[in-house]
Design a protein around this nucleic acid. Structure first.
Lengths: 333, 333
DNA sequence: CTGAAAGCGCTTACAG
DNA sequence: CTGAAAGCGCTTACAG
């Protein structure tokens, strides 16, 4: 795998490496004669030259690499946003390094270290509970950083988030139009603020309305079985007119799985609203009313914020809030 | 983002960069005195030193980067295998660069160029129709390469594949035990050999059995609508005892979506077998009998083959065939 | 219009 | 036990 270098071209063309470099990089400022330019370009093609970006990176102190840390790239939501980020990154000439943290702060830290050693120009991360330390460290080193989905309260850096609180309020209002007697909402048992926002938006409305509401919180590790157990215990078909609100896609999947398995009809027996819009929902007999996150927009903003950071690092911690959208289908009656 | 270098440590410790390098890399051969060793390590920690892998890569001609090219990282199957590859890669100290080709040979080529410029140590790819040119080029440059899922007939390089032909034969035998009068199978309209194997294994059995079988081939671009149209036309509920065989996860999703939407019961109205095992299937009211690909095993083999290639490049083109498994659930009666 | 030279942060064979 | 030096493949300010 011996690759041709700028030196080889220079030798063959009988010019200096500087000249070759100028030609390859199409610098307009330094004017090389057309003839040498053409000769160099021809030789480059002939010997199959491809630039060595690593050498370039070393010299330029820019790798054009972005590290992306998600909880789990095999999770539908994250693979979808990763795809959007990939697209936006490519547009600006960046390539994506990917790592999954499994919501584990140790792994998260390892990944940040790995990526920073690989000299990524910045990272897009979804922090996890306990990752504050690692993040502060990166910020201390003035590492460009943007968080998507999650944000942290006690650390200030740019984040692309969702109007979680407001959309949950909105969902409550939407449900209330249908006169439900009981609401059951299922979320994570977590300290992560963006997920708490989702719950609290809903809760604020509940408390000022007097409707019966049951909250089920599940551990991140064992979503499926806890969601099933929670519904088993709390969902009594035929007693009251009930709506379910699943606060993210994993919970939504587990919840719908439970309903499918137990032949509980939607919306005849119970109504459902689920956060996130995933392909999987389409296999459920009823089209699911859901909350769509504007993934493309979020990805675009994240890359933009990151790219700005690479130019001028700032700790401002501006937060870009994207607007989630309620997609009304047929699962609420 | 000025980072400490080996030089800084050397200066502070009053030793040469060579000494620092030896200590940092824990070379046992060259024995540095305990006292300088400790001093260096302490300083490194104090000034927050992290090695610059790019400089190391340049010198060593090894980046510890692997490029992964899949058709679409947001597709459930590929994000799952990507996750497995990530895990296996990490074990050997590799980091993953990701790119999606969208089954587009131009994009595929771009990604190979991008990754090779980034000096990846090798690539794991799923070739697409028309990517032969780009692949040959890589092979010419003696670029370590492994294909997963897909393989190419006219180009020889290591591949991790599935026993597609045999598992389809096996599925036929399994279905025949249930005395179906009609089989409908849906696959891609493609020249890719591994997908043809899936069809042909099935077809060989059909022709020697005399059972009625309908083949539906759909274009890769527009799976959902074509699957729906195909089923609309060919699936007549109540006429014959029928089984459906979906040849991959995208088709499986589209097919099950059609059944769910039209309230066609499984297995009462029609039986179903689907390739791949995805979370999405769990939202379907019936547990789906499916073919599980051993993703972990495939990832492990892919990384192993690639790692071997980086040590000694060979064009042998050995093919590792992994065994798919029929997971019997409740969708066949 | 072109080249010599320094330097990015490392590693390593060699010398002492 | 430690250091001087070359070199990986680039870029770029400077000189001519």
């Amino acid at each position: 795998m011996k690759r041709a270098s700028i030196k080889d071209i220079a030798r063959i063309a009988g010019v200096s490496v500087a000249t070759v470099s100028y030609v390859i990089n199409k610098k307009e400022g330094s004017r090389i004669s057309e003839s040498t330019k053409n000769r160099i370009l021809e030789i480059a093609k002939e010997i199959n030259y491809t630039p060595n970006k690593i050498a370039r990176s070393l010299k330029m102190n820019k790798s054009k690499l972005i590290g992306l840390i998600v909880p789990d790239i095999s999770n539908d939501f994250y693979s979808n946003i990763a795809r959007c980020i990939e697209n936006e990154a490519m547009k600006l000439g960046y390539t994506i390094l990917i790592g999954s943290s499994d919501e584990n702060p140790e792994k998260f830290k390892k990944l940040t270290e790995l990526f920073s050693e690989q000299q990524v120009d910045g990272m897009i991360v979804t922090p996890v509970a306990g990752s504050d330390e690692a993040i502060k460290r990166l910020l201390q080193d003035e590492y460009p950083l943007v968080s998507v989905d999650y944000y942290l309260e006690n650390v200030s850096f740019p984040a692309v988030t969702l109007n979680n609180f407001e959309i949950s309020e909105h969902i409550f209002d939407y449900l209330m139009k249908h006169n439900f007697e009981e609401l059951i909402y299922i979320g994570y048992d977590t300290t992560l603020p963006h997920l708490q926002d989702r719950q609290q938006g809903f809760e604020r409305k509940i408390s000022s309305s007097g409707v019966t509401a049951k909250k089920i919180l599940v551990k991140m590790g064992d979503v499926t079985s806890e969601v099933h157990a929670g519904l088993e215990k709390n969902l009594i078909i035929g007693s009251k007119k009930t709506a379910l609100y699943f606060l993210n896609n994993k919970i939504g999947n587990a919840g719908l799985h439970y309903l499918a398995k137990n032949k509980i009809r939607v919306p005849e027996d119970v109504s459902v609203i689920a956060f996130d819009e995933t392909d999987a929902y389409s296999l459920f007999p009823t089209e699911i009313t859901c909350i769509r996150q504007p993934l493309k927009e979020m990805a675009k903003q994240a890359i933009k914020l990151l790219d700005e950071q690479t130019a001028h690092f700032s700790m401002k911690g501006e937060r870009v809030v994207c607007q989630a959208e309620l997609i009304i289908k047929k699962s609420v009656k």
